[in-house]
Design a protein around this nucleic acid. Structure first.
Lengths: 130, 130
DNA sequence: ATCGTTGCAAATGTTTTGCATGTCA
DNA sequence: TGACATGCAAAACATTTGCAACGAT
């Protein structure tokens, strides 16, 4: 009944790349990283595994400015936002209780319910700016 | 030298639809709205005009959760964020000086430069929740 | 032997672009 | 007239899906 999740070579490979990545990377970048390691994994499989990891809340996903989705191993399970380097993808997880409260308040003031928010900060990190 | 922006029927039509729209709408929805009005405008032209309006800062654009871009006539020229109804697209422009400051501070704390941020609040508006 | 997984190719859906034609100024 | 605008079809993208073959348990 409950789907058994199998431990395949491809799943392990995707997970391993994610572990070694410092920042956010697109599915295509991850696919390329796998090729560089000599691991042959179909692009669709990369997408499928990333999606599974996101569903399992083991990976964070966010949409970059150009609309492509970026993935990164989740560091903190709690709700948080990101400060992401638009050049190298390095990211810092940021907790923003103050912002959460602000967002909730704004929404409530206008009678909105089921509120969610998207907050991402993009910039160039110190290393890339050097 | 400087491109002259011509006042074509199509440009006027797109602009008119934007004026009548209450909230954010996708390029395709705008294209459909034009058809309903009996205005024949190519989809590419809709995209081109919307992009031109965004460049001219006469229209706000944001990316919905599914990755499609939504457009809306700009109410306030200053920097602001949106509280958007995920059901009908109705939107409230929100100024968040406190949040701007927070975002800038977080970025500075980590040595990031050229900082930008994306903050959107999605919810269901009072009318749609009723 | 199952039944989830994979790979590939094809399909999707949005947005962009090449280019010949139209048209505003 | 002449530069910008348009329309269409095709291209470009990221992402998803159908399906037969594969492989972990």
């Amino acid at each position: 009944m409950v789907d058994v999740i199998r431990n395949t070579r491809q799943r392990r490979a995707v997970s391993a790349v994610l572990d070694d990545l410092e920042g956010f990377a697109s599915a295509q970048q991850i696919h390329t990283a796998l090729e560089r390691r000599g691991e042959k994994v179909g692009l669709s499989t990369v997408y499928r595994n990333l999606q599974a990891l996101v569903d399992a809340e083991a990976v964070d996903a966010l949409r970059g400015d150009d609309g492509e989705v970026l993935y990164r191993r989740c560091v903190d399970a709690e709700h948080h936002h990101h400060l992401v380097c638009r050049r190298c993808g390095a990211a810092v997880e940021v907790s923003g209780s103050a912002v959460e409260a602000w967002a909730g308040g704004v929404a409530a003031d206008h009678g909105f319910v089921d509120v969610e928010h998207t907050i991402e900060i993009f910039g160039t990190c110190a290393d890339c700016a050097a």
